[in-house]
Design a protein around this nucleic acid. Structure first.
Lengths: 327, 327
DNA sequence: CCTCTAATTGTAATCGATTACAATAAATCT
DNA sequence: AGATTTATTGTAATCGATTACAATTAGAGG
């Protein structure tokens, strides 16, 4: 590949002038610019981002850390991030942590090593101290999941309110024995949605029963099935289920179906996230919709501001309860 | 952030020695190594990948281009790529082209600009000439979708055979009016699977009817529904459907259900890819499974070999027909 | 204690760009 | 024309690492 030196020689100018053409500085004469552009074309030259980045000490790369790309919840967020990033001249590196501390270390080092300029963090399971420490010296924003005590900016929704409204909806359609399929409570959203669930129960003087609570380990369909199986095997079976993720709710739906019960008459089901598949289930799934694309855009804007050294403020966006056939 | 110079000064050695410690050269005395490591620790130093990359003229970054991250088909492939890449000391940049030529240009330039060392290409819709031209000078491999005429290495499956077997399976369970929901035939897999479909028809002396073929535009659930709606509205409705993607098949399933027909008795359905959702539908979906994780691993290995200047050979991997409730 | 070889360490060039500052060319003004 | 200002272009330092080669130090042998 050609370098800027070769272009300069071919065009009969200095490297500085070539660089000026590249960065379209207005201080270069039209005829010179033309010569340089000819040379660039002739040599099929493209500037090395390596040299430029070293000089400017930036990489124009954003690290996006997600627990798992297979969860459709993240795809819209990522679209938002990518659109915004490209618009601002950044590219993104999408990295799946798999909640694996070794990967975490690798990816965090990409920022320490200046391979990336900042991190959009969506993986809540990552070692808290590491994150806080990294945030001391490098730009980080949290998206969706965040650390309430920390001082790291975030964009998310009001999970407690959303869960409260979802459960209240179930109560209003006459359900009282409402089961709760939750994630591991190390996740903030899990704790907050649980609080919302309990708040609704308290408001209607219903008692929160441990037997109707189930915490899954892995966020996939099978966990939802497994959870529902356990819940159905009880003497006093629930008449509704609130799952903290559509993926779990769909697994539950499947299991209810397998046991010959009807949704929503026997058991109503409500999920969370409004993933696109949630409209394809039988029956279609009632769910809580989050403004995922916007969350992505906002977190990208936030991290870029942070990289530029500007101040940013955390935000909580609006959610919406989408009532469909399953309730 | 500290630089190698500061570490050298603090440790009382030259930058060369620090570099040697960093790259654990064996020509450094144990006591010196210790001093340097102390300094590194004290300054919380991490080497800048920018400087190193410039010097080594490599980025250790692999570009992975996919049409859309929301298609679950790709997630397993990506896992394979990522695992292999990390193991070989590479990181990946996952990029969604959205089949958008502008994005294509941006991402292709990342290789030209040496921001990435090579490309794993899964987006078939990209301008063919651009790809071939880029492949002249830069490492590219194709995964899943590929260019038969080109000379670019690929890893994929035998789509024609897989489709042939799928359709034959439908014929064997007594179906004769087999509809075909296909993608745009600009895609190789679409053309090949169509060939397989026709081959099965010919073998059983069945005539391929245009009215049972439907080409979708966008690969999502809604397209599958739309396609099925059209197929059902015909006087002579099909008794089976072969869709080239589970996503489409699931949409079709939904539509069949909505029209009150039974799967598989009235209409059998078969998909392609074995995405994880396909086991959550009602009824569960018969589908063709591809070794996606392995495809990912192999394509990563191939591109890394190419980057190192080694020769690589294209491969076709084995597929498998997974028979479930929908047929 | 001195020589000679082997083991360490240091010096300085290099990768490919950007940019402050200096130098030159062109344009404007007396 | 000559002086002065302005527009263009060039020179060389710089970013942070790696590494060939030179220089130094240490160890072995006499």
């Amino acid at each position: 590949m050609a370098t800027i030196q070769e272009v300069a020689k071919k065009a009969g100018v200095s490297v500085a002038t070539v660089s000026r053409v590249l960065n379209n500085s207005h201080t270069v004469k039209e005829t010179t610019r033309f010569k340089v552009e000819q040379a660039i074309g002739a040599l099929n030259y493209a500037p090395s981002v390596l040299g430029r980045n070293l000089r400017n000490s930036e990489s124009r790369l954003l690290l996006v850390l997600i627990p798992s790309i297979s969860n459709p919840f993240y795809t819209e967020i990522i679209n938002g991030i990518e659109d915004t990033a490209i618009h601002e001249g950044y590219n993104i590196m999408l990295c799946e942590t798999d909640s694996n501390p070794q990967r975490e270390a690798i990816y965090f080092n990409l920022v320490r090593n200046r391979m990336a300029d900042g991190i959009i963090l969506m993986d809540p399971t990552i070692n808290r101290n590491n994150v806080l420490q990294l945030a001391e010296t490098h730009p980080i924003v949290q998206c969706s999941e965040f650390d309430k005590e920390g001082h790291i900016s975030y964009v998310s929704i009001n999970n407690e309110l959303a869960a409260y409204q979802a459960v209240k909806h179930l109560i209003k359609i006459g359900k009282r024995k409402i089961a709760f399929i939750n994630s591991d409570e190390k996740f903030l959203y899990a704790r907050e949605r649980k609080a919302g669930y309990e708040k609704a129960f308290n408001e209607y003087d219903m008692s929160v029963e441990a037997k109707w609570m189930y915490n899954i380990q892995k966020l996939n369909f099978e966990s939802g099935q497994q959870a529902m199986r356990t819940l159905l095997n009880q003497a006093d079976r629930p008449d509704a289920v609130f799952a903290v993720s559509d993926v779990l709710a769909i697994g539950a739906l499947k299991e209810i179906h397998a046991s010959g019960l009807n949704v929503p008459n026997d058991i109503a089901v409500i999920g969370f996230d409004k993933i696109s598949f949630s409209n394809m289930t039988y029956p279609t799934l009632t769910t809580v919709s989050q403004p995922m694309y916007r969350m992505g855009c906002i977190s990208a804007t936030m991290i870029i501001k942070k990289i530029r050294g500007e101040k940013v403020e955390s935000m909580l966006l609006e959610h919406e309860l989408i009532i469909r056939e399953s309730t």
